[in-house]
Design a protein around this nucleic acid. Structure first.
Length: 743
DNA sequence: AATCCAACGATTTTT
DNA sequence: TCGTTGGATT
């Protein structure tokens, strides 16, 4: 490849392989640009080509480019693909996640916000522990405000770039009378004294320091000639402000995203960012990528028709030159088990027709749905993998091990010290820790320092004192090792001498060996880092499970984790009101919640290359309660022309015992018989309910699935029934009949 | 300080 | 149903 700068005309090879929109997006290097990249329209290709273009035409050197992603995976992919395009890796540029880049900048100027450059980045456990420590002093009702909820409120404020002093009175009034805001203040104070920040702070401190130090801000504004952002629809307000600030110099900000795939509003993502782009950056070009290279026509048509029901969107018209393909299949099933059985059978059939399992995914709305599929796949012997468990760093044993290293690296790290002070058990309990805290406060010293001093006194019981003395002595020794001992060796020593490894070796639980394995991986990972600090940063911001080749397996995961992926065949089970759209999304966020759920459905459908199967059940078991489920409104919203409703009524084999076919219904009445039609406003779709008869408490009834039982409570059409065989259930009256009429 | 049990609550989770 | 959590127990 010719990489001499400026010799690269706009007709270069890499440009001819792009379609018009893509090429436009690559060539529009100057000024603010919003690239609306629909699902499957070649977004990554545009991003990487654009960066390569900027570099090879000499518009900027690597150090002058800021390329921001949300995930490490995306960052890595971009790095790799550009190296491939250019035939060599690019060094020295600012490519990474928002958080990694913000941390890098913050380390350089930490003292401007009252931190030391070796500040610690907290994990969720640390944050919770910290809030729990502050809660008692806040006279908050901890029933209503558990640490999790407090932290949630604080994080939402941080997402919106609201430091404690910027939270408005109106904002905080309804949050426990301002008690949450006071706690937020205390939380931030405490973070500063332990020289730490949480993920949100990485961005917030950036904003503070760049806002207050014009010359620092100016130097970065000058430096970053080109800024590129991936998945812009997921940016929160703080991230938006950060970008806007850094882009002020050259105004060459290119944001790529898709408002229709914004599914992280509950994490603070602000769709408004992308919707308002043209206002925020006057003169912005908006380029739409609408040609889809992934899915067949019917799938695209179904997805487009669905998402068209959303109001707040910029609007795109996706099209494909691919064949129409199969229609999206919609299938009604009796319950979750039957749904799992049906999908299992379908997968086996696909397999017989030569479909790789690796090309198949089951995308669920919530984690609990996975169990039935796992059970089914296990009995069928269908190899599968579950995506989205806890990540490497989130595992308990890794966090514990890292906590040890944190204390070695920075003895002031109270939260880390506290985490492992009694792990493994050393007989140092809450009482002792409380004494330490008090001493530390009094001496204005760290917990560790307070511990070192207190073991010289006789304030503690002799057993505790001996134990704590030995621990602090160990740490001092490990700290001394640092210089001439390799990092990997150091970790080994720390984990062995502290008794941490021994703790898991002695543990007889089945997951103990796996944990020991993970610890080995950690040791292996650290070997690549020259210094402990660099490694710790890497661990908290980047480190992931090194996944081997998964082999040919079906994939089971949530819709959220499926964003950005694609599969030949996608199964979308559980399309029921209450589950999808999820009731809580509607309760908590109303219309915008509904629209986000709809985008999630859109994301699900657009993952499919050749086939998408939607299903829903009439009865969903939720925490051992049977719920009568209604088909999701999203099913009604799929354009009939692109949908094929499963017509095989034998799926309802078990309904034969039902009186007059009263119950199984909404599905057959609405979808199979009448085709998919739009629901009139106010029509809940609950056709069968009207026909249900009233039952008194004490009535003896019969239910097709649960058998005979006694009504113990009746509230409208909802009955609590104590079944002879199946226990107590909540059942709709329309699903039972008087016992004497049964059989 | 450690262990045991009842009560509670249970979407989604890039960093 | 099942895992976590905090209070009560030893």
């Amino acid at each position: 490849m010719n990489d001499s700068p400026a010799a690269m005309p706009d007709t270069a090879d890499y440009l001819t392989e792009l379609n018009d929109g893509q090429r436009q997006a690559v060539l529009a290097t100057e000024g603010p640009v919003l690239v609306l990249a629909g699902a499957g329209t070649g977004k990554t290709r545009v991003l990487t080509t654009r960066l390569a273009h900027i570099l090879t035409t000499g518009r900027a050197g690597p150090g002058q480019i800021l390329a921001v992603t949300f995930t490490n995976k995306a960052a890595r992919e971009m790095k790799d693909r550009i190296a491939m395009l250019l035939g060599r890796p690019v060094e020295g540029w600012w490519l990474g996640t928002f958080h990694a880049l913000a941390a890098r900048l913050l380390r350089r100027h930490a003292e401007l916000v009252g931190l030391k450059p070796n500040f610690t980045i907290l994990d969720t456990d640390d944050q919770i522990r910290l809030v729990k420590q502050l809660l008692p002093g806040s006279r908050l009702d901890d029933k209503k405000w558990p640490a999790r909820a407090v932290l949630g409120a604080i994080e939402r404020w941080k997402d919106r770039a609201l430091t404690p002093d910027r939270v408005t009175p109106a904002e905080q009034a309804h949050l426990a009378d301002g008690a949450i805001l006071r706690l937020y203040h205390a939380y931030q104070d405490r973070l500063l004294t332990v020289n730490a920040c949480d993920f949100g702070d990485l961005l917030l401190h950036n904003l503070t320091l760049l806002g207050a130090n014009a010359e620092v801000a100016a130097s970065y504004q000058r430096q970053f000639r080109y800024i590129l952002v991936d998945e812009y629809q997921d940016a929160n307000v703080a991230q938006y402000l950060w970008l806007r600030l850094l882009a002020q110099g050259h105004r060459n900000l290119c944001c790529v995203g898709d408002d229709d795939q914004s599914i992280y509003g509950w994490r603070g993502a602000e769709v408004g960012n992308i919707l308002r782009f043209e206002n925020d950056f006057p003169g912005a070009q908006v380029i739409r990528l609408e040609r889809n290279y992934r899915s067949t026509g019917h799938i695209l048509g179904a997805a487009s028709g669905l998402i068209a029901h959303n109001r707040g969107r910029l609007g795109k018209t996706l099209w494909t030159e691919d064949e129409e393909g199969d229609k999206v299949k919609v299938r009604a099933l009796w319950d979750g088990q039957e749904e799992a059985r049906a999908i299992g059978e379908e997968i086996e059939a696909l397999q017989r027709h030569g479909q790789r399992l690796g090309g198949i995914a089951i995308l669920v709305r919530a984690g609990f749905q996975m169990r039935e599929f796992e059970e089914r796949f296990l009995t069928l012997g269908v190899p599968y993998r579950v995506v989205g468990g806890p990540r490497f760093y989130e595992r308990q044993e890794i966090r514990d091990a890292v906590a040890y290293l944190r204390v070695v690296h920075q003895p002031d790290d109270d939260l880390a010290f506290e985490r492992i002070i009694n792990t493994p058990r050393r007989g140092i309990g809450d009482t002792t820790v409380r004494v330490l805290h008090q001493a530390a406060r009094g001496q204005r010293a760290s917990l560790f320092e307070a511990a070192r001093r207190i073991v010289e006194t006789d304030e503690l019981g002799s057993a505790v004192r001996r134990s704590l003395a030995s621990l602090t002595r160990d740490f001092v020794r490990w700290q001394g090792l640092g210089a001439d001992t390799g990092n990997a060796e150091l970790v080994g020593i720390v984990l062995d001498e502290s008794g941490y490894t021994g703790m898991w070796q002695a543990d007889k639980s089945p997951d103990a060996p796996g944990r020991l394995e993970n610890l080995k991986e950690l040791v292996a990972a650290i070997a690549e880092f020259p210094d402990l600090g660099g490694f710790l940063e890497h661990v908290s911001l980047v480190l992931e499970v090194t996944e081997g080749d998964p082999g040919d397996m079906a994939t089971l995961m949530t819709l959220h984790s499926a964003k950005g992926l694609e599969f030949d065949v996608v199964f979308l089970p559980g399309w029921e009101e209450g589950l999808f759209p999820h009731k809580r999304a509607l309760d908590e966020s109303g219309v915008s919640g509904l629209e986000e759920e709809r985008r999630l459905a859109y994301v699900g459908l657009t993952r499919a290359r050749r086939r998408a199967d939607v299903s829903f059940v009439a009865n969903r078991r939720l925490y051992n309660q049977w719920q009568v489920a209604m088909p999701s409104r999203f099913i009604d919203e799929l354009p009939p022309a692109h949908v094929e409703v499963e017509k095989n009524p034998s799926q309802f084999g078990r309904t034969q015992g039902l009186a007059e076919g009263a119950a199984v219904w909404p599905i057959q009445a609405r979808s199979v018989a009448g085709g998919l039609r739009r629901r009139a406003p106010g029509d809940t779709g609950a056709i069968a309910v009207a026909e249900a008869q009233d039952y008194a408490v004490g009535a003896r009834v019969f239910h097709v699935k649960f058998g005979y039982g006694l009504v113990t409570a009746a509230e409208g059409s909802k009955l609590d029934i104590d079944f002879d065989k199946a226990g107590t259930k909540k059942v709709m009256a329309s699903f039972v009949q008087p016992a004497d009429r049964a059989g």
